[in-house]
């Protein structure tokens, strides 16, 4: 039952006001700035260039390479997180021996500061003093260029992302698995369905809505990646691992190119919106069919 009491305004307005003031207002501010040519160093008075910043950006190869790098990291990392996370969640749900012990350990990484995790990763991936180097040198692979070669560095960043965020997938999928009705499985047992058939015929389709939500959240969050890359490679070598947020930071905070950076962040927003809407549109028919 919904009540209607004037006091409801007292309840909701503080939150609305804070969000309006801190997130909508800067948005308006940077939207208008993105149409200006405006630099602080060297100081040039603002001049209206309309879509000029956007046009420059779309012709800038560095923008496209940052967009590509971010997309690559996000999609590969989330794919691996989902595969590993779902697998571990299934195992935990089936009461694998020692399951209780695993739970705390499995939860840990997602609560740790990405900056600290990235520092730890730098130690692990150190080509001379790191434990990974020692382990691999037993197989004859000595002093691999983990963070100094573009492809290797990208792979390392993806590995760190998978390490840190798979726990989130495990947590969500585990919660989802526990809501599944048991009688369907009992019926399947009577039909002598194999474990493999049960998974693809029952578990996977029934977990599809939750899977969709988890992958969506992770994908959007992965696109924001910045701190891990900032500490691990700083975008290097060259600009091989530069992500969109890092690119915007370099332009805005190092060069103080205000109009350009605002346009860049709006292009980023547009890109995220396109990806989100496409994802939902692609998935909708599947989700509705199963209902």
């Amino acid at each position: 039952m919904m009540r209607n009491d004037p006091i409801k305004h007292v309840f909701i307005w503080p939150a609305v006001l804070v969000v309006l003031a801190i997130s909508i207002f800067p948005l308006i501010y940077s939207l208008t700035t993105s149409f200006l040519s405006y630099r602080l160093i060297p100081p040039i008075p603002p001049r209206v260039v309309w879509l000029g910043n956007y046009a420059t950006l779309l012709q800038e190869p560095r923008f496209w390479s940052a967009l590509f790098t971010t997309t690559l990291i996000a999609f590969i990392a989330v794919g691996l997180q989902y595969a590993i996370g779902f697998g571990v969640a299934l195992a935990l749900n089936a009461r694998v021996p020692g399951e209780r012990l695993f739970r705390v350990a499995l939860l840990l990484p997602m609560l740790l500061a990405p900056v600290a995790v990235a520092l730890v990763a730098r130690m692990m991936f150190n080509p001379t003093m790191g434990p990974l180097n020692q382990f691999l040198s037993k197989f004859g692979l000595v002093n691999l260029p983990f963070l100094t070669n573009g492809h290797w560095a990208l792979a390392c960043i993806i590995a760190v992302e998978v390490w840190q965020w798979t726990p989130f997938v495990i947590l969500m999928m585990l919660a989802g698995l526990q809501t599944l009705p048991e009688d369907v499985y009992e019926a399947a047992e009577l039909e002598n369905a194999s474990a493999w058939q049960q998974f693809w015929g029952i578990t996977f389709p029934m977990m599809l809505p939750i899977s969709a939500a988890v992958v969506f959240i992770r994908l959007i969050e992965s696109y924001k990646i910045m701190d891990t890359v900032f500490v691990m490679t700083g975008g290097g070598p060259g600009v091989d691992t530069e992500t969109l947020t890092l690119f915007a930071y370099q332009e805005g905070f190092k060069k103080f190119n205000l109009g350009y950076t605002s346009a860049l962040s709006f292009l980023f927003l547009i890109a995220i919106t396109i990806i989100g809407v496409t994802y939902l549109a692609l998935l909708r028919p599947h989700l509705e069919k199963r209902r």
Binding site: I12, A15, I22, I220, G252, S265, L269, I272
Partner: peptide, 24 residues
């Protein structure tokens, strides 16, 4: 819809607001 508006704030890339907030 109000709830969706709240939650959708989380979707924004923080760099959009972080930089504008710095200027503001």
């Amino acid at each position: 819809d109000i709830l969706f508006w709240f939650v959708s704030q989380r979707m924004f890339p923080p760099i959009v607001t972080a930089f504008a907030l710095y200027l503001l």
